[in-house]
């Protein structure tokens, strides 16, 4: 049973949404939706069956690593050469909070970027076969992965939902 994919190109948010709902109702789970901008209605429709983005986990770990690094760096280096400067003890926590804070943000931000690249599978070296340049302009795309023998039925469903163009 060979797998194939069918792409429907839509001009409107509501028709795209209808196609997604109908495909879901018929049990097609392998959907890729292309949108020029993030659309909340479409996101909600897709997201309620998928786990939340794990990007925030990376951010948290990155930020905590930053805090730890900031305090470790300042305390450890101060103990390497215990010099009293400005009448403060070698290990003075208040000034080190600033370094700890800045590194929290720095590491948190870089970890977020890393997470975006990892989870979003970027950089993507080859364009997906179903991608169309109009998807960065004003068209929406719904690409359905299905067994070859059902391609006909999927095409009909996409057209009925209001697709401007259907191709395999």
């Amino acid at each position: 049973m060979a797998a194939t994919s069918v792409l429907g190109v839509f001009a409107h948010v509501d028709t795209t949404l209808q196609a997604i709902r109908e495909l879901r109702a018929k049990g097609y789970a392998d959907l890729t939706v292309y949108t020029p901008v993030p659309v909340e209605e479409i996101e909600e429709e897709i997201e309620h069956v998928r786990p939340l983005s794990k990007v925030r986990f990376f951010t948290l770990v990155g930020a905590l690593t930053g805090t730890a690094t900031g305090f470790f760096l300042t305390i450890w280096t101060s103990l390497k050469w215990e010099l009293v400067t400005g009448g403060k003890a070698p290990v003075s926590i208040p000034p080190f909070v600033i370094i700890g804070f800045e590194l929290t943000i720095l590491f948190g931000g870089l970890a977020t970027l890393l997470a975006l690249l990892v989870f979003g599978r970027l950089p993507k070296l080859r364009p997906s076969p179903s991608y169309d340049p109009r998807f960065t302009l004003d068209r929406f795309g719904v690409s359905v992965g299905c067994p070859s023998e059902r391609a006909q039925a999927v095409s009909a469903l996409l057209s009925a939902a209001g697709a401007e163009e259907v191709r395999r």
Partner: peptide
């Protein structure tokens, strides 16, 4: 290689919000 697929937007939006928060 940005394509604007739902997976890309999902992680993108989350990352963008977190970067703004940082």
């Amino acid at each position: 290689g940005w394509e604007g697929s739902d997976t890309q937007w999902k992680h993108y939006r989350r990352a963008y919000g977190l970067l703004a928060a940082l």
